[in-house]
């Protein structure tokens, strides 16, 4: 069992959990993820690692309630435990000094962007960060991102905070104004990562994305998370989750992420009935 040491709600339906798992904490690197199960009947789901404290043996995750498992997870409190917590999984990001890096985060994807941004910042890169959300209340990690960015831009779809519009609007502007950008890192909804890649492609700027397909074991065994990258089938769990965004078939990923939509609805209904 993996106890929850602390819990914070960052925004409506978005929560931060500190979980005690010394083995994961001692090996985690930026870009990696965990597979969790909430209880004995639970489904295995992947969640990105937001932060880790090697001394205390704590791994922090930030997640959004999007389905039955994450809804169940949101019901847990400090002192409760997760049944299973496996990691760190996936290939760690290879951060290096490149010059100027633009970090683009959408929604809860910013949680996954944070450790990557910090790693690039620590190597002396100039960091321009753009984070966005649907509306002000759903924006997370503003202060944390500000602390590790040389410049921070905020967008909301409805204009309730920061600039009205999409993260890609700001990105387009920065690039069009002739800013010399050596690398773009984007994490967020698939549609956002796709849009970021469309913006950076004409500028020929290398763009890394972190993918979030449906997984089962997370160790390479099942192929549920397969994606087409440069025309080749890759397993996100062992070859990724970070890929060259200009090579990713985002349409296929979006389609494959809808594979269990029908069942997910049924599960949420069933879960609602059990909750009463």
């Amino acid at each position: 069992m993996y106890p929850i040491i602390s819990k914070k709600t960052l925004a409506e339906g978005i929560h931060h959990l500190d979980i005690l798992s010394p083995l994961v904490a001692s090996h985690a690197q930026p870009g990696q993820f965990v597979i969790i199960r909430v209880d004995n009947n639970g489904e295995r789901i992947p969640l990105t690692i937001f932060n880790y404290n090697r001394q205390k043996g704590i791994v922090s995750i930030i997640f959004q309630e999007v389905g039955e498992t994450t809804e169940k997870l949101a019901l847990l409190k400090e002192g409760d435990s997760l049944t299973d917590f496996l990691g760190p999984l996936g290939v760690a990001m290879k951060e290096e000094f490149v010059g100027t890096v633009v970090s683009v985060g959408g929604g809860v994807g910013t949680a996954s962007l944070f450790p990557k941004t910090r790693a690039f910042k620590e190597l002396g890169n100039r960091m321009i960060s753009i984070i966005g959300a649907r509306t002000k209340e759903l924006l997370i990690l503003e202060e944390e991102m500000r602390g590790i960015s040389d410049e921070l831009y905020i967008t909301t779809d409805d204009g309730s905070y920061g600039r009205k519009g999409l993260v890609t609007d700001v990105l387009k502007e920065i690039l069009s104004l002739g800013e010399k950008v050596n690398l773009v890192v984007a994490v967020g909804p698939v549609i956002m990562m796709k849009a970021v890649c469309l913006v950076t492609k004409p500028f020929k700027i290398k763009t890394l994305v972190s993918l979030n397909p449906v997984m089962v074991d997370g160790t390479g065994m099942c192929g549920s998370c397969r994606v087409s990258v440069g025309g080749e089938t890759k397993f996100t769990c062992v070859h990724g989750p970070i890929f060259d965004g200009h090579k990713v078939d985002f349409e296929e990923l979006m389609r494959r992420n809808r594979r269990f939509l029908k069942e997910e609805k049924l599960a949420i209904k069933h879960f609602g009935q059990r909750k009463g």
Partner: peptide, 22 residues
């Protein structure tokens, strides 16, 4: 994937167990 969902995840008992199969 097919068998792991069924055997490890007990997808044949979905939605009592959370792992789905379609």
């Amino acid at each position: 994937e097919f068998l792991t969902r069924i055997n490890l995840g007990k997808a044949y008992l979905f939605p009592k167990y959370d792992t789905p199969i379609s």
